[in-house]
Design a protein around this nucleic acid. Structure first.
Lengths: 201, 201
DNA sequence: AGATGTATTTTGACAGTGTCAAGATACCTT
DNA sequence: AAGGTATCTTGACACTGTCAAAATACATCT
């Protein structure tokens, strides 16, 4: 719908999205201002406002792209369940978060979610990502070694919280350093797997 | 050292800290500006700069106060370990995070941690909070029903991540709504307890 | 081809921000 | 009473997001 609009610039919208992500990665959130972004793209200060209603709108669009990449990474391969498969998923999640901080910060940042100026399309994309995970958890429930008493929704919510918490603490370097990723992933995998395969009381 | 300095205002530093927290709670992060804060306290725009070097410095001081309250809440009662005690700890953590968002956002927010302008005293306070939790986990390891193969550091890191992740998702309303807190707490408690009391292989 | 309309970009402006440098004020100590 | 120091104010600067109005370039239709 809006992908080929190349009047004066070429494809300004695309250029803005890329340059913005680059700017975020290089200098962090405070390094990205609409005016600097415009300058980098070689246009005037208010040119971006014809492609994005707001700064928030721009950020939402970047976050959306983040979610698309995210789902692409996490949907890697088949559906067979095993402890190794689970451990790999955990590592993939954390690796994405660490290597794509610019995106992850926006995707799950307070800025966009709290402000209620959040785009509907972003909310859909975000919801789809969780839905994908939840459906996978539901699928596991058929297996005979999986605890039939497990509520897949609660399980998905809590395990996702663990992954998100680990990502945040790793990214911000709070109680975890990225050097210790392997043993931490192992510990998380242990807990995820134990809860999944517990015997019903 | 700097608590009784009441020359012109009374105790401006104290007033600024309180007013800032109030402002954050009422209007969120974007509602707090140094100039508005000064205006609310009835002083000139640059008066706060004689009590806090930076805006960051101010935020760090608020976060510090948050940690002190936090530790006060979490250190509630005795040290006897039980599933109920664990579940209560989880609820207390989440409740603090939800009811004191102004503080929690700063205490574990990217803003302060990423910028490397973070105060040494804040880092100490934050480290102390985790250390307290870790020591508790280490203490549990003596009990006979606790898995002796468990690495208390990894366990503390991953469970804290879960708590932090739950808090963030709850606060920002991402995949969790605060209405569903009880079952989510239960699920988390189940996982924490199961890992803690697992039989060694 | 030329006219019309629409999408895109620019210029100018406004209110707001964090923070620095100089000056003014009030308090404490001697 | 004098001097020094901690506190506060005023003025200024370079930024920021974003609106309104004007200018430009393109697509389309006659």
């Amino acid at each position: 719908m809006n992908s080929r609009n190349s009047y004066h610039h070429g494809d300004l919208r695309r250029a803005l999205l890329d340059e913005a992500a680059l700017l975020l990665r290089e200098e962090g959130e405070q390094g990205l201002s609409m005016r600097r972004l415009a300058a980098r793209a070689g246009v005037s200060r208010t040119a971006p406002y014809h492609h994005f209603k707001d700064k928030q709108d721009l950020l939402c669009a970047i976050a959306e792209e983040g979610f698309r990449r995210f789902v692409g990474v996490l949907t890697l391969d088949g559906r067979e369940l095993s402890r190794d498969r689970l451990a790999r998923f955990i590592r993939d999640y954390l690796q994405f978060a660490i290597e794509n901080t610019e995106y992850y910060d926006l995707m799950f940042g307070s800025h966009l979610w709290k402000s209620s100026h959040i785009t509907g399309t972003l909310q859909k994309e975000a919801h789809g990502a969780f839905r994908f995970y939840l459906d996978q958890a539901r699928g596991w429930l058929g297996q005979d070694f999986v605890n039939p008493d497990l509520d897949p929704l609660r399980y998905a919510q809590v395990t996702w919280s663990t992954l998100h918490g680990l990502s945040r603490l790793l990214i911000d370097g709070i109680y975890l350093e990225s050097g210790a990723m392997d043993p931490v992933c192992e510990q998380a995998a242990s807990m995820f797997w134990r809860e999944l395969t517990a015997q019903p009381a």
